[in-house]
Simulated scan of single mutants.
Amino acid sequence: MSALTFSSLSMLALAAAAELEIAVLLLVILWGMSHTMFNISFQNETLHASQQDSAAIAMSLQSGIYNVGIAMGSILGGAVTDNLSVGDIGYVGGILGMAAAMFTAAVLIAAMKRRDASGAAGA
């Protein structure tokens, strides 16, 4: 979840940092690191969730889903460029990323509460 948050914040801050090359460089580094963290953790969870004999299939599906996400980002970026401006791509991506982070947090918190409630009832 932190990778998604870092990536979203980097996109939101990109326009503000455009005046300083070092600030843009640092944001792009943070952005790249957050995507790497996300991809590695997603692969790890995919491997843990799959059975050993189906790990290759699970990783193929994960790779396909990841690439669909890249394609959807390109489509959305093109729509933002056509209807707003190139400068708005970071804002739109950042807002969507933060919304996804908040949704993920809400789902995780609800799942942890259900787990805690079922653990307390079973004790």
Rank of each mutant, 00 (worst) to 15 (best):
M1Y: 09
M1K: 07
M1P: 02
A3F: 11
T5L: 11
F6Y: 09
F6H: 01
F6I: 13
F6D: 05
S7H: 09
L9C: 06
M11T: 03
L12D: 10
L14D: 02
L14P: 09
A15P: 00
A16K: 00
A17R: 03
E19Q: 09
L20T: 14
I22T: 12
I22Q: 05
A23C: 04
L27A: 08
L27S: 02
V28Y: 03
V28R: 00
L30W: 03
W31P: 04
W31V: 00
W31F: 10
M33D: 06
M33S: 11
H35L: 15
M37V: 09
N39S: 12
N39E: 11
N39K: 12
I40A: 10
I40P: 02
S41D: 10
N44W: 13
N44D: 05
S50I: 03
S50V: 01
S50G: 00
Q52C: 01
Q52Y: 08
Q52P: 09
S54W: 02
A56C: 03
A58L: 05
Q62D: 13
Q62T: 10
S63E: 04
S63I: 12
S63P: 04
S63M: 14
I65A: 04
I65Q: 01
Y66H: 03
N67G: 00
V68L: 15
V68D: 12
S74A: 15
S74I: 01
G77L: 09
G78M: 05
V80M: 04
N83D: 04
G87F: 06
I89R: 08
G90Y: 02
V92G: 02
G93S: 08
G93H: 10
L96H: 10
L96A: 12
L96P: 03
G97F: 09
M98N: 00
M98T: 02
A100M: 12
A101C: 03
F103L: 15
A106M: 13
V107A: 03
I109R: 07
A110S: 03
A110N: 02
A111L: 06
M112P: 00
R115M: 05
G119E: 13
A120D: 00
A121Y: 14
A121N: 10
A123K: 13
